[in-house]
Structures are given as C-alpha cells and as structure tokens.
Design a protein around this nucleic acid. Structure first.
Length: 429
RNA sequence: GUGGGCGUAGUGUAGUGGCUUAGCACAAGAAUCUGUGGAGUUCUUAGGGGGAGUUCGAAUCUCCUCGCCCACCCCA
C-alpha cells in the first residue's frame, strides 16, 4: 500500500499557526510606524515582466542572472516572480504618474518574494520582506529617516545590539573613476588575491572589498577608498546623512568596505545586523540605500529616491531565539455541558458570548464531564461553566474557578455579565 | 552553481547485516467515566524520504534521486 507522498518544494516553508503570531506582530508594528511617518501602503503584483528586473535590478546581479523564477505565459509574455520589491514599486510610480502628485511619494509594502537559490540558515526561496521607499526627494534627511524607521521598528520588536553599517558608493559621476583606480590597484596585485577575488576583479571589483580571506584583507586595507574620490555632491550628501543620524541619535558604524549587490544603488547604502555572540549568523536583516538613477532608467523622469527592505523570516528567527514563546491569548472560559437539554442551551450561550467578543472554548463533541474539565485545564481556561440536566431545567449555571476550585451558581441570564466582570478583574491584576 | 553532514510514527530518539512482529519517551485518540480537571490503568492510531542494486536475508552496505541542515557564492 503506497500512499502518495507530497513534499513541500525545496526552499519553501509553511508558516504554521505557532509562527503566525510573530508575523502578525511584525506586521502590526510596521503598519503602525509606517502610518506615523505617513507612508501609504502599496501592493504590487507578485509577477512582473522579466525585463523590469533585468533592467532595474541589473543584468550583472546574481539575483537576475541566476535567481529569478521566470516563465512564459500562454500569450508569450516573459514574466518573473518578483525577486525584490523596488523595481515593481518604481514601475507603479511611473505608470500611475505619481510624479504629478506632491513629492515625495512615501510607500511601504509587506509581501512575499522569490529567489531560486540554495536554502540555508535564514534563506528561503520564498520569503517575506517589508520595506519603505521614498520617491522624489533628494534631501539626505530622507536617507536618515529611512534608517531611523527600520531602527525604530526593530527596537519596537525588542531587538538589542543592533549594528547599522553605512557607506556611500558615490554616483554615476564619481564612481567610475573610483572603480577604475580600484581595478588597476587590484590588477597590479592579482597574484596575491584569492581565487574568488580574481573572478570578482573581472565581474565587479567593488565586491572584492568585502572578501573575508585574510590575504585579501591585507591588500584591501591599503586599497584606494571611495571617500577620496567623491564628487562635490556625493561628499556633502554623505556628510549630511551622517549629521542627521547623529542628530536623531542613531548609532551607526561607518564601513568604507560596504558595497551592495544591486546595480541601482547610488550614494548612501546601509545594512542592519543583529550582533549575536551566540546563535548562527543569518546575515543582514535590513538592507537598502539611495537609488537616484533608477526611476529614469526604467523610463520615468529623473527622480531621486531612497529606500530599504527587511527580511521578515530573519526577524522572526531572531525573535524566536530570543524568547521562549510569544504568549498567545488562549480562551479564558470553557463551556462544559451534560445532556441534550444542556447542550441546546449551551449552543445558544456560546453565541451570546461571541456577541460580547468573549472567547469561549468548548468541546460539544464530548459527553464526559471529566474529559471536558481535563480539556479546559489543558487549554488554560480561568473559568469553566458547567451546565447539566438539572441546571438547564432550573435555569442556572455553575461557574467554576479553575485555580481555586470554588464553584458558584448563577442564573443563566446573568452568566455573561458575571463572567465579563470577572475577566475584567483578572486583566486588571 | 561548488563542497560537507543528515534523513526511523506528529515530535525527540534506540537499533551498525539475521536475536526485530523495528524498541522507548512525549504527543494524539479511546475506554475506565454523561456530574467535577492536572494522576493512574488498559487499549488504539502511526514509522526507516523515494527508487534501484548487493545478499539466502537490508533501517543497517552500494548507487541514483528527492528533501533538510551547514559552509562558500550571494543576499533579506
């Protein structure tokens, strides 16, 4: 007898009820803070034209080169499951003419992304991100505010030891010069670099900067730094971002070696980590930066923009390793019944409680009082209401305090009010 | 994409070619028990990821495949 065995596709995961409370908690915090900073929520489709990412995210990036889920529709369109949010948001901004609205446009989102890659700690093929984008504002205060928002959200979620790494990678004016001089610096010393870095030298020399190999580190420490190549605009912009961060007292760590994998970033880039001496390293939980050239690249007007995104599963995993469990509200009242008449009456009572928004657990399928009490105990109810044949006939009901074992008899009509009163007392303690 | 480890009921595990009808614990369900919970007793459900091979005999050895975990790459 063979039963068919279906397995979840590689890299995917079910979010079971016990994890839902984490997701809901995060969603709520994000939503509240987004509202406070006057961001509007946007949902873009999970599929977009493949080209949008090829152009926006960049053909040279790993995300586009090897991690996109692409397919052709019956009509022949080339579509892709979104591997990141920003291009879709920018597409929407352009398509709906949001540049005609008062600028800046501030948007937030929360949803699933798809990347085809080998799963690992904190890495999935379908995963959730939330993020913020500010379009149409070039002021460095925006860069600082985006960072502040993520910082506040993580603080609200009880994160300690946050490390914010920040850098500027210049813009299309000054970065080419830097890249050139960096390449020639490394090419000169290619023989001393590790194999990966020799490959990076050809593909993206900037990435050599975050190689962890010791022999490379030595060479990197002497390498030319972006900071010496900034054009006037980038220089003052970066300086101001840091000043703003100082002003709002966000602790940051200047990391001249921080570069990001996406093509569209200009000027400010940042990542946020949790410094955990124990537990495994799940990488950055937030990443983002400024992308002043992207809107134009995707066919819009020349529009400065800045944003960032956070990995929800990574946040959940950090929250889980921190606390034993998130207390989820169990029903405080259990309704136990014996006999047909009582059963009929308790069904009605159950509805009365629902109208009062008091959560009541029951076990109508069970007949033994002992079994019902056992269940009441297991689910952690504070009170059990007992109604049997006798009580049903006399129009009364027993309230049993599960802690003390004391029982009281109340008139059937008064029981909702009585329970309400008692629950209030509990929650005030 | 590269490299390493792993895969036994829902969960955690034992068993290293025959002593196994695959054992144990927890969980779940039922009975005891339509009238008072946390316990007991009894019973039940349910298992070697999948496929091929070696062998008289495979959970155990070999190969393939799928999946998980970890590291690299890269990223949230």
């Amino acid at each position: 007898m063979k039963k068919p065995k279906f397995q979840i596709p590689s890299g995917m995961h079910d979010i079971l009820p016990e994890s839902q409370s984490y997701f809901q908690k995060i969603y709520k915090v994000v939503k509240d803070i987004a509202g406070f900073y006057e961001f509007g929520k946007i949902d873009t489709p999970i599929v977009e034209q493949s080209q949008l990412f090829e152009k926006g995210t960049g053909l040279s990036t790993d995300i586009v080169k090897k991690q996109m889920y692409t397919f052709r529709t019956k009509g022949g369109d080339h579509l892709a499951l979104r591997p990141e949010f920003t291009p879709g948001v920018v597409r929407s901004y352009i398509e709906h003419g949001m540049f005609n609205l008062p600028q800046p446009i501030k948007l937030w989102y929360f949803g699933p992304l798809f990347r085809y890659e080998r799963s690992q700690a904190g890495r999935f093929r379908q995963f959730y991100q939330f993020g913020f984008e500010v379009l149409g504002e070039e002021s460095p205060s925006v860069d600082a505010q985006v960072i502040q928002i993520f910082y506040n959200i993580l603080k609200e979620l009880k994160f300690k030891n946050l490390i914010i790494e920040i850098n500027s990678i210049g813009d299309n004016q000054c970065r080419p010069y830097y890249k050139k001089s960096l390449s020639s610096y490394f090419r000169y010393r290619e023989g001393q670099l590790c194999l990966d870095c020799r490959r990076r030298l050809r593909e993206n020399p900037l990435r050599i900067l975050d190689c962890k190999e010791e022999k490379c580190q030595r060479i990197i420490s002497q390498a030319p730094q972006m900071i010496d190549y900034f054009c006037e605009g980038c220089k003052t912009h970066f300086k101001k971002v840091l000043e703003f961060l100082d002003e709002i007292e966000i602790p940051y760590h200047l990391n001249p070696l921080l570069v990001r994998g996406l093509d569209y970033y200009t000027k400010t880039v940042f990542e946020i980590f949790e410094d955990s001496n124990e537990g495994k390293n799940i990488g950055a939980i937030v990443g983002g930066g400024r992308y002043d050239a992207l809107v134009k690249l995707l066919g819009g007007k020349d529009t400065p923009a800045c944003g960032g995104a956070a990995g929800v599963e990574r946040i959940v995993s950090a929250m889980k390793s921190r606390t034993r469990s998130v207390s989820h509200s169990a029903p405080k009242v259990f309704l136990a019944q014996l006999g047909d008449l009582a059963k009929r009456k308790s069904l009605k009572l159950f509805e009365d409680f629902r109208k009062e928004k008091i959560q009541v657990a029951e076990s109508f399928g069970k007949d033994s009082l002992r079994t019902q009490l056992r269940k009441a105990d297991k689910t952690g109810s504070a009170y059990t209401l007992i109604i049997g044949q006798k009580e049903a006939l006399e129009g009364i009901i027993i309230i049993r305090d599960m802690k003390t074992g004391k029982q009281e008899i109340v008139k059937f009509e008064k029981v909702v009010r009585e329970i309400k009163k008692r629950l209030k007392k509990i929650s005030n303690l």
